[in-house]
Design a protein around this nucleic acid. Structure first.
Lengths: 345, 345
DNA sequence: ATGAAAGCGCTAACAT
DNA sequence: ATGTTAGCGCTTTCAT
């Protein structure tokens, strides 16, 4: 009947130690409330050791209804710097609590997502992390709404779930502060903006929040933006184009705030072509703090996406006794480098 | 006794359909060799549907000794473009075969790796993928040597396991071909080289193989390298420095082969500073094909690391009936862009 | 064509 | 302080 040759089980250990399976179970799972003779415990531990006993977690799970696993499904391509960090953070937190992580990507296809989640649910995961690569509001599939879930880098439309997002508005304020500190009060321009696309007609979450924070931060010092070049955020090319027309047009900006590092890269390229040097002629400030920021010359000051911390937080929250439905905003640290200087006068 | 309120089981379905659990198991698992009346089958399917029955894969696994899961543990930070691709490929292949993926990182710490592998083994994974971020030779921990394992982007020192690596030597030849086709026969310089470090005194695998392929490919056309600037591969800065001294020193190179895109980025920066334009004054060619390659101006021609294909291959091999211990070399496709031109005469 | 029964490896009431 | 026993939800042999 047993389909295949098996490994050593608690029964084997019990036999070898001359005790019952219960006793073995007790000592191996380290239960305190039952007092087993010191010698029996020694014999059991010894036998387990000698036999190379390892618990079968599948069997244990069937009985306890705890698998010590958490499932993480993200929407699109984890092949970005950020994604990796997020997953690493999640992993760390899971490991600290002796959990393992199932990882999968839905490719932003609802049907695929459903199947993945079902696969995890069928395998009795203890909880689910729903991650998005770009911060946004979404609706959690019905199938998981009754299971422990935490949203990572996204918000459920109902607000009924615990979620973890970067504190983008505060980041915008940080940006304002950085510029203000350096003495910039006019000629501050934005490249990127809210990022209006067909799928996000009102702009992306990060765009809206960053802009709000930036504008408010500036406003509190009586400063206003000189202009905003709305453009696609996805590649340096767009930042390059926006900066070119910006430099070709009106009065030269003294500082440009880029909505992400790729855009800043494009802005560098354009500044370079116009014979402008960063930061002497124009200060550049950015968001995300991807690897690119440190590769650029001069190195780019950027307000970092705290992806690793977010990943950690999501799993911690998921695995903690009472995950209060609340939005956790993780601070975005600024990475000061060499792209900001006082305005030329 | 049952620790908690439970979901619907096969027993519930059987009760509802008025048959035995065996019958339910038969039809639900779609066994062909047993003929169950068409109506019984209908009733069962209907009942399962109505009740929203979902199999408990933990229970199933305990019985069948198959969990339909594979564990993937990689060494360091998956926060690179490449890593994501590799995992995606692995994921795709796993999903196609109805498996889910455990993912973890060892941080290159043998003890951590041991613990992770043990966690996966204890959870009865059907197989293991051992991934490395940078191609290299290693030794698989003893604990997993008797379990189905495939090495991804690394080789076991014994050669006893199935492994999947990029075909770096062929890539080097491709690079040679690209340059030769464009008419370059002299002034060809390499930035990067074998990448000798404290941990890799003989150079890294990719460095050795790429160089060998490049030199041989060139040699077959009677061409020799003008020089090799050995340097650290990890950031554009090193490429920048190497290129600067290269440009300051002897006769100007007509083509520079960079060992990865970051280095090429540095070379672009240096060329730019020297007033040289790519590709008119100097052709640049690179390896890896990261996102950077398409972001650079002019866009960089690069021989791509086939990470997604490698991931797919590793899982396919792992899950196929007889994983022959063999080294599978995956071809590296060249991405032609705008950084190569005929040499100026 | 269907069902009874045993058992995968483990936990946990309930005895003793 | 330790053992007996009954499951967890599923598969599978063997009877009927």
């Amino acid at each position: 009947m047993p389909p295949s040759p098996s490994r050593v089980t608690q029964a084997d250990v019990a036999r070898r130690a001359g005790v019952s399976r219960t006793t073995v179970s007790f000592v191996l799972s380290g239960r305190e409330d039952t007092r087993i003779s010191i010698e029996a415990r020694q014999r059991i531990l010894g036998a387990a050791e000698e036999l190379g006993y390892r618990p079968n977690l599948t069997a244990q799970s069937l009985r306890t209804r705890k698998t010590h696993t958490v499932g993480l499904v993200s929407d699109i391509v984890a092949s970005t710097h950020y994604a990796g960090e997020m997953i690493q953070g999640a992993l760390e937190a899971a490991l600290e609590r002796n959990h393992l992580l199932y990882f999968a990507e839905s490719g932003d296809d609802p049907e695929a997502e459903r199947r993945l989640l079902q696969g995890m649910l069928d395998r009795q995961v203890d909880g689910l992390i729903h991650a998005a690569m770009s911060t946004r509001v979404r609706r959690l599939p019905d199938q998981v709404r009754s299971h422990p879930s935490v949203l990572l880098n996204c918000l459920d439309e109902s607000g009924e779930f615990t979620s973890v997002v970067p504190d983008e508005e505060a980041a915008g304020r940080q940006a304002a502060k950085l510029l203000l500190e350096a003495g910039h009060r006019e000629g501050i321009h934005v490249v990127g903006g809210r990022h209006f696309t067909r799928r996000t007609p009102d702009g992306v979450y990060a765009g809206r929040e960053r802009m709000r924070g930036l504008e408010r931060g500036l406003a509190e010092a009586g400063v206003r933006l000189s202009g905003v070049s709305e453009c696609d955020w996805s590649a340096p090319e767009y930042g390059y184009r926006a900066a070119r027309s910006l430099l070709a047009a009106g009065p030269r900006p003294t500082a440009v705030v880029c909505c992400n590092d790729r855009l800043a890269f494009g802005v560098y390229q354009a500044a370079d072509e116009s014979g402008l040097s960063v930061p002497q002629d124009v200060s550049v400030l950015s968001f995300d703090d991807s690897e690119l920021a440190s590769w650029l010359r001069p190195a780019l000051t950027s307000v970092a996406l705290p992806h690793r911390e977010m990943g950690r937080a999501a799993v911690s929250l998921l695995l903690s006794p009472e995950p209060v439905p609340a939005v956790h905003r993780i601070p975005m640290p600024v990475r000061r480098r060499d792209s900001i200087a006082p305005p030329r006068r």
